[in-house]
Design a protein around this nucleic acid. Structure first.
Lengths: 215, 215
DNA sequence: TCATGTGAAGACATTCACAGCA
DNA sequence: TGCTGTGAATGTCTTCACATGA
């Protein structure tokens, strides 16, 4: 079954809603109104309702949305039916941080292999993940049927690593290197550019402060 | 002078163009056509032209856009006239990675102080940045006129740290903690949610692979 | 009365397509 | 001929506003 197309921003928010709903569930909450979830997610009630509508999750005017149904619907919408295996390349500070994040958070997604060039890091286990040498990328990716990779190497090494991953069958990339990647059209790339993000925050903070002072 | 409002996505792309243009400039390139910059930025030529138009940067059909004018126009559009000082809170793996990124990249933006709770990390210098104890946040932020902060602490500590920062005068936040922050309306927050990003990549990779197999 | 589900409107962003210029 | 600059068209996302139901 082909998963149906959900709007980009909605997918992002659904993932966020799920994290919030889980937290509430852990505190014993059984159900939530759209305006409650909106407040927790820093959004609007109308948006929450539309997002949930788009994945066929329904509520009631009595109690809002049941936590159990929320979690089930969101999972059905955005999770793989099977386990999805991910590789992480570059076990520096950033890579180590991501191993930690990923270990806690995603249900059907698992980082099943990590790679680094430094012999001091290879053949060890970080956060439960075995670290291989970069030279094993092709072999391990194929053997473990990995189709997504996280790039945490320096910008200068990113393109080469990605070429190897793609050749080995990876078709989705989450790239933290500040470098635009060239990939075949069938490969999905998500770029997370921390320096760009910082410049953006600086710009909009300044813009807002200036607007506020004019009054 | 109030900086003029540039569309959100355009600001992001401009910051990215700048990085790319700098790289070309270092290789001796003097000018670029919109389609060349588009190829390097994984975008379209029309979009590049519109982005540049929106900041009043003009080219010529002979040589395209001059590198020198590109850098000057982008700087005038998105940079502060003065130096913008930033604090980083949480010098773990992620924080250390960000100190490194930020040190290399942003011209008028500087991380001028870092904070951590761990006495083993405080009163030391990481990547040229002094690390203070969290208890000094109010004092240091005020003394250095810091108005933007980067949050790299665990989710459970994020809200408390942000409350302190905002009370001390910070009005822009770049948050890496997987936690939605509550802030006054005049504070700008940019959320970078790595676990959400991973779930998103997993979803769209799967969607695309499925669509491709149908043919 | 209060919250959901949703058509319709509005805001925002991207792409098309072509006039004008060197 | 080949590129820029840009109006207009298209596409995507968000918000409004209200009928409906418990």
């Amino acid at each position: 079954m082909t998963p149906s197309k959900i709007p980009t921003r909605t997918v992002e928010r659904l993932a966020r809603y799920r994290r919030i709903v889980r937290e509430r569930a852990d505190k014993g909450v059984q159900s939530l109104y759209s305006h409650e979830l909106a407040a927790l997610a820093a959004g609007t009630a109308a948006q929450v309702r539309r997002d949930l509508m788009s994945i066929g999750c329904t509520g009631s005017s009595n109690y809002g949305y049941r936590v159990s149904e929320l979690l089930e619907s969101i999972g059905r919408a955005i999770d793989d039916a099977d386990l999805q295996r991910v590789a992480l390349v570059g076990v520096g500070n950033l890579g180590a941080a991501l191993l930690d994040f990923a270990a806690h958070c995603c249900p059907n997604i698992v980082i099943s292999a990590a790679f680094d060039l430094d012999p001091g890091k290879t053949d060890r286990v970080y956060h439960g993940v075995h670290v291989y040498n970069d030279s094993s990328i092709a072999e391990v990716v194929r053997a473990q049927k990995i189709n997504v990779a996280i790039i945490c190497v320096p910008a200068s090494a990113a393109q080469e690593v990605v070429d190897q991953l793609v050749a080995a069958g990876v078709s989705g990339i989450l790239n933290f290197a500040p470098k635009i990647l060239r990939v075949p059209i069938n490969v999905y790339v998500e770029q997370i550019d921390m320096t760009v993000a910082l410049e953006k925050v600086a710009y909009f903070t300044r813009l807002r402060d200036a607007a506020r002072k004019e009054r």
